[in-house]
Design a protein around this nucleic acid. Structure first.
Lengths: 88, 88
DNA sequence: GAATCAATTAGATGGCCATCAAAATATCGA
DNA sequence: TCGATATTTTGATGGCCATCTAATTGATTC
């Protein structure tokens, strides 16, 4: 993992909403975007923004299924990030 | 570790300068503040600000020795943070 | 006591970003 | 085709924050 991605991930995790999203999708194979919105007190526009940030950091991947999108944690990237932190 | 501190740490890590500081003091028992400034392209005021943020997040502790201050990583907190991330 | 060095504080500034509302795009069902 | 639902995009706004300069505090040395 290069420094740039590491930095992006750190920034992505700094927002509580994004961490919440990560926590939720981590427990399942994948999760519908609309499903996420039920619990989070944010508009669809804001959620869309956060998902893009997570995707841009390489932390999640998105699958489009007709009207819906499904988000999935990229576990190898997550593990790599943890390993990077543990180096300290 | 409560959610508040977890959040503070995540935010503290999001700034590259602060992560750099952490990386450096992690390798030694403690490090003089003036020593840190040698390598970082920031003013003393900014460094002071960052150190306070790290302290506020509970990540470091500071020892004052006459004119100088010495910074030390609080390893148990760091370990706790990693453990928290690993829960995901 | 004056000069010097380390660090902090105060105050200002510029940029980034989470958020929203509104409009647009896309897909489905009737 | 029309309306409904899901998501994205656009544009705007307000707040937070990294950074600086300048002034201040505290400690040392001469």
């Amino acid at each position: 993992m290069d420094a740039k991605q590491f930095q992006k991930i750190a920034k992505a995790l700094a927002d509580p909403r994004r961490f919440e999203i990560l926590s939720r999708i981590a427990g399942v194979k994948e999760m519908a975007c609309a499903n996420l919105r039920c619990d989070l007190p944010i508009t669809a526009a804001t959620l869309s923004h956060h998902i893009k940030e997570l995707e841009n950091a390489g932390l999640v991947e998105v699958r489009k299924d007709a009207k819906f999108i499904h988000i999935r944690l990229r576990r190898p990237v997550w593990r790599e990030y943890l390993a990077e932190l543990k180096k300290i």
